[in-house]
Design a binder for these strands. Structure first.
Lengths: 186, 186, 186, 186
DNA sequence: CATGAATGAGTGTTCATTCAT
DNA sequence: AATGAATGAACACTCATTCAT
């Protein structure tokens, strides 16, 4: 079963979800069609398992997010988080791509995505709200941040960042950090 | 041919690109399979035409972007742009969704996306760079902004903003604007 | 479509319904799988069409049944009917066999069978009741007669009658006729 | 092995023979696939065992058939036999149904059916011939009687008699009895 | 004796594409 | 230019059977 999941990742990385054939996966796993259907009811089911593992890892990274305050520490934490998140996304690139493809047809994947996304933005909202005192709607900012992260992660996978990576992370972190805290201690 | 394009949009809106069948489209257009292949070589070809029209409209919105300076005018312009962009995305929702789906299989759609994206970020970069004087890498910021926009537009279509839309736009605009210009006029 | 129905009969005659493959039928009809599914949603559907035609023919034979009275005319009519019914069953042998096989899985075929059967026994009941005056429950007799007929027809198809056919018909007709009318004019 | 046979009966009663899966049977018997193939070479083999048991029971009922003469005793014996036969068929309903289904594919089951059928009709022929003196071909009548019985038994299982059972048995017995003996004692 | 994970041949069904009219 | 019946390659999925433990 692990072998099938691993093989599926390779195949998804190679041809994407919709172009992936059960036959490709079982061949990559050096096993048979019968075995595939012994562990999964169909390919959506297999993708769901992979997506759940992926969601788990992403949730953990977001849980690890420390407090983000106006000072240099906050900026550093934000920068670290951003880098970790994008790196994790890179590691899970094939699954994320397959997840995105599959979600357009498959309700359950869409739901898992919405749940994960809501959890991530509310967690970021918390970490920022604790430290902020002024009028900016931190929740909307958190939503925007997660939107940006998801998309950057996706681009990272499909096209590269468009500038040197480290510079990219720190620049984006600085802009976002300033956006949230300018006026408080910048 | 226009009838086929319109019918395709309806079908894509209804079932997405991968679940759309040539038969669905010709039935919605009240024409025949033969006619479809008279105007398009296949469905990827039809989608390419729609995507090009869509890219054209998005490029126009980005071209309309005025200078974004540190003052209140800059903030207002940014806010307006953000709203227009998301609204346009909403209007083209079905095509954007189909484009995203199709891109994972189809090289040409992926290329069109990359080209459009590069054009949009460099245009935003220009509009911000003109007004900035400090060290922030405006290019990376522009990339991040476009990433965020794309994703927010997508969420707007599929899940809504999570807060009322106007508040969302202005909050995000304020955070981004501050991110770029804090210290210059905050 | 007629070609497919004809081919299906040949295949059903050859291997029965459950062993029949769509591939056998389209090959016998010198056409393609696609064409099969153009006219029928699946093989149950095709069998339903054949069974309906067959039910139609059997109903007509039963409709043709004249009055069966106690005299020699009644005996002759019964004998004729019996022969016609069994001959018709022979002609439709392949379909009847397939119908019987398919009915165990397929509700609609079972329903069609029950409807046809009920119609036939009530018609026979009518034809006999008109002429009888005593206490025998003609309805139960009609049910028994149809039961016998169905089964004899089936045996005729699968194993032959077990005695010379003409003798068989007239003997059975005489026994049945006597059963119904003995005492009235025998 | 008894457990498997019993489980098979339950499964056949539930879904019929063709829809029954080895997996259904081993699960119902709370045993494993391997065990199934320890006792039977395949499912036809298992069905053959059940059919043989069933044929044995039916043969015994037919063996129990006493002499059927023209008098009231003969009528009573015929009526009793009819009732016993239909009841036995009811008890073995699942196996008879499976037998009928399986016979269309499986030569050996068909042969067993033909052998049992021949034995039954010749036995009935004997019991009637002993008492008759006139010209009716008792053999053909016996064949017809068995045909009717088989079919009535099947209907009883699948649709009921259409009138209350006791009336059904005695009416049919009376009609048949009269058919055979009218003129001798009517 | 018993197990049950693994197998892979076999089959129904779909749907993009063609081409004679 | 327009049609739509016909095609058949492609694919998902099932399930009887085996065999190492």
């Amino acid at each position: 079963m692990r072998r099938l999941l691993g093989a599926a990742k390779l195949v998804f990385a190679d041809r994407g979800y919709h172009a992936a054939r059960v036959d490709d996966i079982v061949r990559a796993a050096r096993t048979s069609h019968g075995t595939f259907y012994l562990y999964f009811t169909n390919m959506d089911d297999l993708l769901r398992v992979l997506a759940e593992e992926c969601a788990q890892d992403m949730t953990e990274v977001v849980e690890s997010l420390g407090e983000i305050g106006p000072g240099a520490d906050g900026l550093a934490e934000l920068s670290r988080f951003l880098r970790d998140f994008v790196r994790l996304s890179h590691r899970h690139g094939a699954v994320l791509r397959a997840w995105a493809e599959g979600a357009s047809d498959h309700l359950e994947l869409r739901r898992l995505g919405a749940r994960t996304w809501r959890h991530m933005s509310s967690r970021i909202d918390e970490r920022i709200s604790q430290a902020r005192t002024d009028q900016v709607d931190a929740a909307a900012g958190a939503v925007a941040l997660i939107a940006m992260l998801e998309r950057l992660a996706y681009f990272r996978v499909s096209r590269g960042f468009g500038t040197d990576d480290e510079t990219g992370y720190t620049t984006v972190a600085r802009v976002v950090h300033r956006g949230f805290f300018a006026g408080e201690n910048a």
